[in-house]
């Protein structure tokens, strides 16, 4: 027997959470663009499984712009005030399995040499409900990095669209169980995800090639069409580089954390004017090496969930999958 929830029951559940002061994040449709947004009313959301999203759920755990502390000059003193802790319950619903899977990938990073309380608070306060995929496209490659259309990694519960205005609920964690406790009914209907995307390359072998070919001219060749716009990093559910800057005046201001991208030439510019990654080929090599060699060596996860958002968003028709496919030709 399975547990099912109707769309109305799902909306009521989330509506009750909103009424209780929780923050609810869900896919919102704006014309042909779908993005994850905080909603004020459940009717704003679109509870349809989608693979093409303008952003990932990452920004609700690691915001694109976040204040660390504020400072104000008082007489001869400077008074520092920590930014308030994230202190509300957060429900993220409608995540793609590849979005949810990014969270366990990021967890060790934000608890490694420094306990990032900003990320950890949000993570502790959040419940993530994903939608099993109902379709895949040519950009999807979750299967190459250990994922699948019904991957539950990082999700507290996963919903399978039954196509009749209801979803099969599979609670994964206690948080997921708690969210749907008493909201579901028993049924003999069982949800099914779409077929896994077909991938003809082996990331493990490509990672070995990357290890051995730091100075290969192939990096420049495959990256020629990349203009370094960094969109790939900003839509990526796992990219997490940030920059810390002070904003304001010397009298009053704040220290903030902003997203950054290794595809930007300024990313590695030294104060001397020397730039160790002075071409797009070197920057692309860094991106791929970080995702498929450095990060798995350190944290045992690929820094990529195969969501394909990078290549869907790339105006130059590049991204991780096209790059991996180009490198795969070198492996063979």
């Amino acid at each position: 027997m399975s547990q099912i929830v109707t769309l109305e029951q799902l909306k009521q559940t989330l509506g009750a959470k909103l009424a209780a002061g929780a923050k609810v994040v869900a896919p919102v449709l704006d014309g042909e663009f779908a993005s994850f947004k905080e909603i004020a009313d459940v009717e704003q959301a679109s509870f349809v499984p989608r693979i093409c999203m303008q952003n990932s759920i990452e920004e609700f755990f690691f915001p694109k712009h976040e204040t660390i502390f504020t400072f104000v000059r008082q007489g001869n003193d400077v008074v520092l005030n920590d930014a308030p802790d994230f202190d509300v319950e957060q429900i993220v619903v409608g995540a793609r399995p590849c979005d949810a899977a990014a969270l366990p990938v990021l967890d060790p990073l934000f608890a490694w040499d420094y306990d990032d309380r900003f990320y950890q608070r949000r993570r502790a306060k959040s419940t993530v409900v994903s939608f099993a995929c109902t379709q895949s496209d040519a950009h999807c490659f979750c299967t190459a990095v250990g994922g699948s259309p019904e991957n539950t990694h990082g999700a507290d519960a996963i919903l399978f669209d039954l196509g009749d205005g209801s979803f099969e609920v599979r609670a994964i964690t206690d948080k997921g169980k708690a969210l749907f406790d008493g909201k579901t009914t028993e049924s003999d209907k069982v949800g099914k995800a779409c077929d896994a995307p077909v991938v003809n390359f082996d990331v493990w072998k490509i990672a070995d090639w990357i290890r051995a070919n730091f100075d290969s001219p192939v990096w420049e060749q495959v990256s020629l069409r990349c203009v370094g716009c960094g969109t790939c990093a900003y839509v990526c559910p796992t990219c997490h580089c940030f920059d810390i800057v002070d904003e304001g005046s010397y009298k009053k201001g704040k220290r903030v954390k902003n997203w950054d991208s290794c595809q930007d030439a300024m990313f590695t510019m030294h104060a001397s004017g020397h730039n160790p990654r002075d071409t797009q080929g070197k920057r692309q090599r860094q991106r791929l090496t970080h995702k498929f060699v450095i990060y798995p060596d350190k944290f045992k996860f690929y820094l990529c969930t195969g969501c394909g958002s990078c290549s869907r968003s790339c105006a130059q028709m590049f991204g991780v999958r096209p790059c991996l496919e180009a490198l795969d030709k070198e492996v063979q």
């Binding site: 203009v227 716009c229 960094g230 990093a233 900003y234 991208s261 105006a315």
Partner: peptide, 8 residues
């Protein structure tokens, strides 16, 4: 603020 507009 990815500056994709600038780079493109």
């Amino acid at each position: 603020r990815c500056y994709a507009c600038r780079q493109s």
